[in-house]
Amino acid sequence: MVQAGEPGSTRPGGRTARVRAAVLAAAGDALAESGMDGLDLTDVARRAGVGRTTVYRRWGTVPALVADLLQDMAEQSQPRVETGSLLKDLLANARLVRETLAHPRQGRLFKAIIAAATCDERTARALHRFYEVRISEWAPCVEQAVERGDLPEGTDAREVIRAVSAPLYYRLLASGHPLDEATAERCARAAAVAARAGVYMR
């Protein structure tokens, strides 16, 4: 999570919350359209219909704005599904990741943020926090599978969840192969088989 005192870290309600929502939506649109190089605080203010000084006073820099956008994305992500079945839980996770990355706007948005994170430390930290939130949200489904006896004791739940989404991000960023439903199912099934075989034991 964004540390207390960082720009955009407060959670007030009312008009301030509406301004934040409008600015973050505008920032996301700008990132999806033009990437990090096209993200300008003045342009974001114009898109959001708020004063330029409001944006500069609250966020101050582009990395601070991106950090707040990532925190908001983590908070707004769909909650974990609990089915009582390891495979069904992993399938739900894989489908959610696939739908996000295959979405015309969200896929471009993630590409832009990941590219920026390779050369901007603050964006990288924000991206790492985003994924830690998402991994922490889904890891309990693996822990519950261990408790049920479906997986070996000592299975690293977080590594299992990472294994589900890693091939999907590879397709988004490297191979260019389709992000289709069949691929998402294959990722989930492969992670489940490997976990049962003890591949992800600590």
Rank of each mutant, 00 (worst) to 15 (best):
S9V: 06
T16L: 06
R18S: 11
V19D: 11
V19N: 14
A21Y: 09
A21Q: 15
L24Q: 09
A25D: 15
S34R: 14
G35A: 02
T42M: 10
G51K: 06
R52F: 04
V55K: 06
T61C: 06
L70H: 15
M73G: 13
M73A: 15
Q76W: 02
S77E: 09
Q78W: 10
Q78K: 13
P79S: 11
R80K: 09
E82F: 06
D89A: 05
L91C: 13
N93C: 07
N93F: 07
A94C: 13
R95D: 15
V97E: 10
R98G: 04
E99I: 00
P104M: 00
K111H: 10
I114F: 08
R122I: 00
Y131M: 10
V133N: 12
R134M: 13
S136D: 15
P140Y: 02
V142L: 03
A145M: 05
A145E: 10
V146W: 08
G149M: 02
D150R: 04
L151S: 13
G154P: 01
G154Q: 07
A157N: 06
E159L: 09
E159D: 12
E159C: 07
E159W: 05
V160L: 01
I161S: 08
I161K: 09
R162F: 08
L168V: 05
Y169P: 11
Y170Q: 13
L172K: 08
L173C: 07
A174Y: 13
A174S: 12
G176A: 01
P178M: 00
D180I: 02
E181W: 02
E181C: 00
A182S: 11
R186K: 05
C187T: 11
A190M: 07
A191R: 09
A191P: 08
V193I: 04
V193C: 03
A194Y: 11
A194E: 13
R196T: 03
Y200C: 11
M201S: 09
